[in-house]
Amino acid sequence: MGNLATWGNELYTGKRSYPFTGKRKLWLSISAVLVLLAILVPVVKGGFTLGIEFRGGSEFTISQVEHTEVPIGEEAVLAIAPDHQPRVTNIAPNTMRVQTDKLTDDQTLEVAEALSGAYGVTKSEVTSTFVGPTWGADISKQALIGLVVFVLLVALLMAVYFRTWKMSLAAIIGLLQVVVITAGIYALSGFEVTPSAIIGFLTILSYSLYDTVVVFDKVRENTAGYEGQVKRNFEELVNLGVNQTLVRSINTSVVAVLPVASILFIGSYLLGAGTLKDLSLALFIGIIVSALSTLFVQAPLYSWLRDGEPEIMRHNKKIDEHRLAHA
């Protein structure tokens, strides 16, 4: 604590400073490479592993099973739908999952009944999901509309709040980068893309900007009236803001990640699959990427966007002269 606080002090006063904006070319190049990789990963892997909601089909979860043998589940399905090859997996202690291709709605019910018999449970222990082939597309379309509407509105909100569209632009570019990288890592993990994962991605949008707004607010405060001083140039002021909020950024990320990690853990080990696991994985990756992106992409990008402005160039020149004179 003592050391951490001292570290915080030094960051605050500027005694210690990490070159977030100073080496912005390096950071931005790295993130560009990461984005490319994130796009390449799913391409190389042959696309995302789509969940049943996107493929269409039927899924059965049988709880409290007496035994966890795979063949009897397969037989039960084949007895009713002979031309469907079922995938039977033991996803958690006492829990089996059976996935099939598109059964008809009625077959779905019959299979559910057959499975309850096969695993010696009452019918009420079988959870069945029948998903029509267009459902996933429907969800994705709505999610995409949501994304576009949200990005437009939030860009407007930030432009008004910060009174500069460049902050807004930097934040949105960073946001897109976060989503792409998170999606890439998600694809790499081989987890299925389900509606829950989509929820996770949409939440990251909100989280990423939330994180950026906090840091940008400090940057805005620092850079207000930058022309009235000759100690730091604009880019250094931005960097100071990022450094001053570094302790907050770390604390916030840790605090945000802890509950998500606990969902991920519980979701993976106790439940095996489902809403919690996919959602929390997307969030887990997304929160970490968002926090890094604010520091290494959004803030540097903002200083870069502003550096070309004549007024700032003039100020930079003034500072260089001042430094030369006082060297």
Binding site: V126, S128, T129, F130, V131, G132, W135
Partner: peptide, 11 residues
């Protein structure tokens, strides 16, 4: 039917 879920009370 776009999707139909029958969830067991246990799950």
């Amino acid at each position: 039917i776009q999707s139909e879920q029958q969830i067991s009370a246990t799950l």
